[in-house]
Each structure stands twice: as C-alpha cells, then as structure tokens.
C-alpha cells in the first residue's frame, strides 16, 4: 500500500486517496489523430511520473505527486494550491 504525505494532513494511507493520473492539454487543432491522442494517449513511464491524487477521505484537496512506477517511491508531494496564509500544513 502506498503512503502519501498530504501537504495538509501529513502521511496517510492510500485508501484515503483517489488516483488522478496525468493531465493532458487539449491540442490547438483537431484532426482525428490529435483527438485520438487527447482521448486515449496517456504517458506510461517506467520511472518517475508526475501524477495527481486527491485526498478524498481527508482534506479533499488535489495534489501533485512525483512517484516512481518502478519502485513506488514517492519523491515529492506538493499542493495544487499553495498553503500561503491558510496556516502551516501538518
């Protein structure tokens, strides 16, 4: 099981999170091939990957997670929204 350190709530177990995968920008044009890429083509890296997870059972915030798909190590978690003046995270 993964343990993800939520920027707000500290280390929590994976069942409290949902996986958001990687984001994908829309292409400026819209040929069939470009749309196929937008709809179906996702990165599948062996190694470090930039993902998004949401802490659904905790603070319900989205976060960026840098995770290694070969080792399951989590190298970095940072909030999508910076904590700024909301108080210091746990």
């Amino acid at each position: 099981m993964l343990q993800i350190t939520c920027p707000w709530c500290g280390p929590r177990d994976e069942p409290e999170f949902h996986y958001g995968g990687e984001g994908m920008p829309l292409p400026p044009d819209s040929t069939d091939a470009e749309w196929a890429a937008v709809l179906y083509q996702r990165p599948n890296p062996a190694g470090r990957t930039n993902e998004r997870w949401v802490h659904w059972a905790g603070c319900r915030q989205w976060m960026h997670v840098v995770r290694d798909t070969l080792t399951h190590d989590i190298h970095e978690v940072r909030p999508v929204r910076q904590p700024d003046d909301f108080g210091s995270p746990a």
Binding site: W8, C9, C59, R60, P83, F86, G87, S88, P89
Partner: peptide, 21 residues
C-alpha cells in the same frame, strides 16, 4: 481560525478544520 487538522473551542461550539477554506 484553527490550523490544518486542529480544532478549537469557540463561543459557539467546537470549530474543526476540514480543509484549507
């Protein structure tokens, strides 16, 4: 207002942090 994952007793009851806002 309470910090993340903290609560405080206020004049109108317990105030619990649930998220950044």
């Amino acid at each position: 207002m309470p910090s993340p994952n903290r609560w405080t007793a206020s004049s109108h009851g317990d105030l619990l942090w649930l998220g950044p806002e």
